[in-house]
Write a protein that binds this DNA or RNA. Structure first.
Length: 275
DNA sequence: TCTCTTGTTGGATT
DNA sequence: AAATCCAACAAGAG
């Protein structure tokens, strides 16, 4: 599932392959992927050049010539491929961007949950979803004290708080479970029960873990691949996600799986204490 | 064949 | 306002 490290890996791959390319023609085979009028979407993209590719949280942002930006969210299983126009269309490819020179950028999404939309570049951070995002999880923009103060006002479970994207951007179900295990924090702990020391610890692990996972090219659990169709390797560094019934690497207790905020949640019942 | 599970976001409901 | 629930989908497991 593409969380921040996977989206960043996709972004870097796309940057290598389609930066500077000009879009000749766009076809929406499954138009519901597009927010707004699909005809207008395809029409507006013609003759635009891809000037840069950005990421904010789990959103990809293609900045195009003529002050237009394409915002794309992969949700569960969205993928981008770059193929020759002559290559047979793969199953579940929904949007095809034909590029000058005979290549195509293809958006593929088994679950059809992903979304994309066009906005003026000046408004790229103002779209709903991006506007409410918390800081990027880097030491430069993610402040530990602010994080602690923010947590202090929330009564919901820390796991749920980490997923809501307003405290910090980019964590999804896998990395949320992982950073809580690393921090010895039980996922159901009300966010406001964390003391400053625990919040700082969690903050540090969030930055470290996402950086480490990005370096590994992300985590491939089911089907994730980057734009080169390469698998990530961080699944070998996971401690709790998908480890139900396996011994905890720290204390040997059996990893449990429960539901927190309607999400599958993995934790060690012994070394992640409830507070 | 049917049911359950998978995860992200946004909108509706409480 | 904040917390909670569900829909948007497809596929694989049992």
């Amino acid at each position: 599932m593409p969380e921040l490290p996977e989206v960043e890996t996709v972004r870097r791959g796309l940057e290598k392959m389609v930066l500077g390319a000009t879009i000749e023609h766009v076809e929406a085979l499954y138009p519901k992927i597009i927010n707004g009028d699909p005809k207008k979407f395809c029409c507006l993209l013609k003759e635009r050049r891809i000037l840069s590719i950005d990421r904010r949280g789990k959103y990809l942002i293609f900045n195009l010539s003529g002050e237009l930006s394409l915002i794309s969210h992969l949700r569960m299983e969205g993928k981008y491929f770059v193929k020759l126009s002559s290559d047979p269309l793969e199953k579940h490819t929904h949007i095809v961007f034909s590029l000058q020179g005979g290549r195509q950028l293809r958006y593929n999404d088994v679950r059809k949950f992903g979304r994309m939309e066009l906005v003026p570049t000046s408004h790229k951070y103002e779209v709903p979803g991006i506007k409410k995002l918390g800081p990027e999880p880097t030491s430069a923009s993610f402040d530990a004290v602010a994080f602690y103060q923010h947590l202090n006002k929330k009564k919901k479970a820390i796991k749920t708080a980490l997923l809501d994207q307003t405290l910090v951007a980019g964590l999804g179900n896998i990395y949320a479970d992982e950073v809580l295990w690393l921090s010895h924090i039980h996922p159901e702990t009300p966010a406001c029960h964390l003391d400053k020391e625990e919040a700082v610890q969690l903050h540090d692990y969030i930055i470290m873990e996402l950086a480490k996972a990005t370096k590994a090219g992300g985590t491939t659990i089911r089907t994730y691949t980057d734009a080169f169709q390469h698998l990530g390797s961080f699944q070998f560094d996971l401690h709790v996600y998908g480890k139900k019934g396996k011994p905890c690497e720290r204390c040997g207790a059996s990893i449990e799986k429960i539901v927190v905020g309607q999400r599958g949640t993995h934790f060690c019942p012994v070394c992640q204490k409830v507070k």
